[in-house]
Design a binder for these strands. Structure first.
Length: 872
DNA sequence: GGCTCCCGGGG
DNA sequence: GTGTACGGGAGCC
């Protein structure tokens, strides 16, 4: 049969379905004069196939000047398909002034905007009654033919005096499609239509759909994961030059595929190692393996920022194609801070993104290197191999390369296991929020909340608010209100610490007090509703008691859904699937409060955020009062958590106390046991302060140290600073010996002064972000880069600049940049000991040692203070 | 004190 | 691309 015939059938069928689904007004306006009998049409429809599948990702293309949705999916029998739907059109909303509705409608319909040689016209205008932030309004739904016409029209209509507001003009077309069609990725979906000839060379079957709709609650199981990792030739250490340095190894890890591809041969019995002749072949084989393994998910660790961009750069340098997608399109690399690499039709997960953004909050690790994350989450680490030596091993010896291949494979394995472990959580979030895995993987808390609200609002007939403009954001940033209640700790070392917290404190408050931008300070409840327990100076606030707000309704639904799940879990025993679902619901619900106070939020409401903390303070203070009454020593409390010292009591006593508190708490509120810590140190925020919040380190039972709020030791700090902080915390928490820690620090300071510290430990690293001549201010690393340039060393944006702050013999008043030297320029003893002591070592441990009465001055002096001996 | 720049992960 | 940003610390100006 001629392919055109299929397309014609689909056209008829989609029209038919449209007619069936639409209201009369619409069909009258749209019914074209077409000649086909109903019987014939019915025949066409019934001859069409129904395809059931799990959507994985969605994109769109322009064909014949109209947008066509491409929905990539996995069928119930496990094949990959692309569902093509050309029936969806972009739109946005216009809210006219009430008296101008008809006028605006007419003006929109007549509007003609020149675009190049063409003219953009509105395709259709519908009138709807909607809710908008607690108000009932009339809004016009304006349809256009092309997504890119929306911003064009938006900018014109925005100027009109008769218009109060325009809305939803920036919802990505493909996402809008999923939302409006209620299509949930990874959930069973069905389409009526027919397979058509693929328009691409990729060979993925294409199914032209007349209709796409959700099918059932069923969701995709056992998504096939393939993890990968590359090793690159880096003779310059951290300095990465993708244009010049090849990829030497590439590992793939899946359930039934374990492979390392490399292009230097050596003798080995390891069958997982595949030898090829060149880097170009390595890339070819990588693509080949991905295609033939046909995973649903390609996973990497920081692959948005490293592996895929690097692969692309290498493919470009070698003049070959890197064709991983389903449609032979290039990988779409987003620049900017949130860079991501999107592969059409193949979900690329960068599991680092999820861990750093979402999971990190609940983790102990303070940084998210693969090694640390894997150890904490999997109890398994990387292979011991010094990556610094890979380049030389590659250059001269072949006997060492096998170890690097195994190292490479291990990284891919860890990435695989991490992805496998996180996938249930990610998938559940996908099913709750309704966006593709690729997007959910990269979203932070506020984005998850916002997209969830955007997707759910139409069920409540709510019109979505706009993103704030820059000046609004600036204004919101200035806003401040009282946060959670803080019980300030007395700095010191404590034993046997129990931590309790209200995990769902804020969500349950938002729900039970009906807190939202649409219900705040309503006219109908003025003087009647209970006032929020705000701080004295604030204007009294209340929330509507008659109408449930959209946000509280949504959050209540999340909470009750989770409670039902928990009950099911209690009844059925452990279920990883239900647990993941419960975690995702909790995570999302907990993000609402932060969202309400987030300056970039569409549903921002400082008053709501403020009211939430006010009620929070009210309840946590109740708990503190009761704990003290029960005889525990309250060490510290912040917002929703309490740290108690057992003070002679047992762990069981504390758990009993918790249970007793819970009995008296209203509704869904619950105090949870967070953990027990044998020791912990609480530190003051600034030298001299009595105590301050969020600065402590706890020793867990496993022996790991959990640090909160100490100045982050960054990669560009010197090795000596990191080493000192780590050692000091260990000496204090494990050996309980602050005096020893001081002796240790003094010894390090003395070593620095005596120039005994090896130069490697005082090297600072900073990356050059842009061309050297574009810098307006000259930081030390810029000064060094200038010198490198002058010395003929090639540098470019992205180069890692290493430098040492050297002692200045003649002028001590110079700027830091004048003392910055290339590591090669300085001799072992040239570093500026004073700088490293004052700006690296001391700041890393100052606050810790302040706790025990040691000041900076004491550390800098070379003798002990006698009165401190009595401190212990 | 405000502005500018860098970091995160990866080899 | 109906886009697109974070938040905090350090040093310069």
């Amino acid at each position: 049969m001629h392919p055109k015939y299929h397309l014609l059938k689909i056209f008829w069928a989609s029209l038919f379905i449209k007619l069936c689904n639409c209201n009369t007004q619409y069909t009258c306006a749209r019914t074209p004069n077409l000649y086909i009998t109903p019987a014939a049409l019915w025949q066409i429809i019934s001859a069409m196939q129904t395809l059931k599948f799990y959507p994985l990702d969605v994109t769109y293309r322009i064909e014949n000047s109209l947008p066509v949705i491409h929905l990539f999916a996995k069928t119930i029998d496990g094949r990959h398909v692309c569902i093509i739907d050309d029936t969806f059109r972009p739109y946005f909303w216009v809210i006219p002034k009430y008296e101008n509705i008809m006028e605006v409608k007419g003006k929109l319909q007549r509007l003609e905007i020149p675009k190049g040689e063409q003219v953009v016209k509105v395709a259709k205008v519908e009138q709807h009654e909607k809710n908008f932030l607690g108000e009932a309004i009339v809004a016009l739904k304006v349809f256009l033919n092309l997504p890119s016409d929306v911003p064009l029209l938006r900018d014109i209509v925005r100027q009109w005096d008769m218009v109060t507001s325009i809305n939803e003009y920036d919802i990505l077309f493909a996402r809008r499609y999923l939302i409006d069609k209620k299509i949930i990725p990874l959930s069973l979906t069905e389409a009526k239509g027919e397979f058509i000839e693929s328009q691409d060379s990729s060979g993925i079957p294409c199914f032209k759909a007349a209709e796409v709709k959700p099918s059932s609650e069923h969701s995709a199981q056992d998504l096939k994961i393939l993890a990968f990792d590359i090793e690159t030739y880096n003779p310059l250490g951290k300095h990465v030059v993708a244009e010049k340095h090849p990829i030497v190894m590439l590992a793939l890890y899946g359930d039934t595929l374990k492979k390392v591809i490399t292009w230097k041969k050596f003798r080995t019995d390891d069958e997982s190692i595949e030898f090829v002749d060149s880097e170009a072949q390595l890339i070819d084989r990588f693509v080949h393996h991905v295609k033939s393994y046909a995973p649903d998910i390609l996973a990497g660790y920081y692959s948005d920022g490293f592996d895929l961009p690097y692969l692309m750069a290498r493919a470009k340098a070698l003049g070959i194609r890197l064709d991983l997608g389903m449609d032979s399109s290039e990988i779409d690399l987003d620049k900017g801070m949130n860079r991501s690499a999107r592969i059409t039709g193949l979900t690329h997960i960068d599991i680092f993104r999820y861990i750093a953004k979402i999971l990190g909050r609940t983790m102990e690790a303070e940084s998210f290197t693969l090694q640390k994350v894997a150890l904490e989450l999997l109890g398994e680490g990387k292979h011991a191999a010094n990556i610094e030596q890979l380049a030389s091993a590659w250059d001269d010896g072949t006997d060492k390369l096998e170890a690097f291949c195994q190292y490479n494979l291990q990284d891919a394995l860890l990435t695989f296991k991490l992805t496998q472990k996180m996938l249930p959580n990610l998938s559940e979030m996908v099913k709750i929020v309704g966006l593709p895995l690729h997007d959910i993987n990269r979203m932070g808390y506020s984005q998850l909340v916002e997209w969830y609200l955007l997707a759910r609002s139409s069920e409540f007939n709510e019109l979505n608010p706009n993103k704030p403009d820059d000046s609004t954001i600036d204004f919101r940033r200035q806003m401040s209100y009282t946060g959670g209640f803080v019980y300030e700790p007395e700095p010191g070392l404590y034993n046997d610490i129990i931590v309790f917290d209200f995990r769902s404190l804020y969500p349950s408050l938002i729900s039970s007090h009906n807190i939202s931008p649409a219900t705040v300070r309503c006219d109908c409840c003025e003087g009647l509703a209970k006032l929020t327990p705000l701080d004295g100076k604030r204007k009294a606030t209340w929330f509507c008691t008659r109408r449930k707000g959209f946000i509280p309704a949504i959050i209540e639904e999340l909470i009750t859904r989770r409670l039902r799940l928990k009950a099911a879990l209690a009844a059925s025993g452990k279920s990883p699937f239900l647990e993941a679902q419960s975690n995702s619901l909790k995570l999302l619900a907990n993000a609402f409060y932060g969202y309400l106070g987030f300056p970039y939020a569409r549903w921002y409401s400082m008053e709501s955020a403020e009211a939430t903390t006010a009620w929070g303070r009210f309840y946590i203070q109740q708990v503190i009062g009761k704990a003290a009454q029960a005889g525990f020593k309250v060490i510290y409390s912040d917002t929703d958590s309490v740290f108690l010292a057992l003070d002679g009591r047992t762990k069981e006593d504390a758990l009993q106390f918790c249970a007793a508190v819970n009995i008296e708490l209203p509704g869904v509120m619950e105090l949870e046991f967070e953990g027990y810590y044998p020791a912990g140190i609480f530190v003051s925020a600034k030298a001299g302060d009595i105590g301050a919040k969020k600065r402590y380190a706890l020793l867990s039972e496993k022996g790991s140290i959990k640090i909160k709020g100490f100045e982050a030791i960054r990669k560009n700090s010197s090795l000596i600073a990191r080493e000192v902080q780590e050692t000091v915390l260990n000496i204090i928490l494990k050996d309980r010996n602050p005096a020893e820690a001081v002796r240790y620090v003094k010894a390090v300071i003395k070593d620095l002064k005596d120039k005994k510290v090896p130069i490697e430990k005082v090297i600072l690293n900073t990356q050059l972000q842009k061309r050297i001549d574009t810098y307006e201010s000259v930081s030390p690393h810029v000064a060094v880069a200038q010198k490198m340039l002058a010395a003929g060393i090639s540098i470019r944006p992205g180069s890692n600049i290493q430098f040492v702050i050297a002692e200045d013999t003649h002028n001590s008043k110079e700027k830091l940049r004048d003392k910055a030297r290339l590591p090669d320029e300085v001799n072992e003893k040239d570093y500026d000991a004073d700088y490293y002591i004052r700006h690296q070592v001391i700041p890393s441990i100052e606050r810790i040692l302040n706790v025990f009465g040691y000041t900076k001055d004491v550390l800098l002096e070379n003798r002990e203070q006698s009165k401190l001996a009595s401190f212990f």
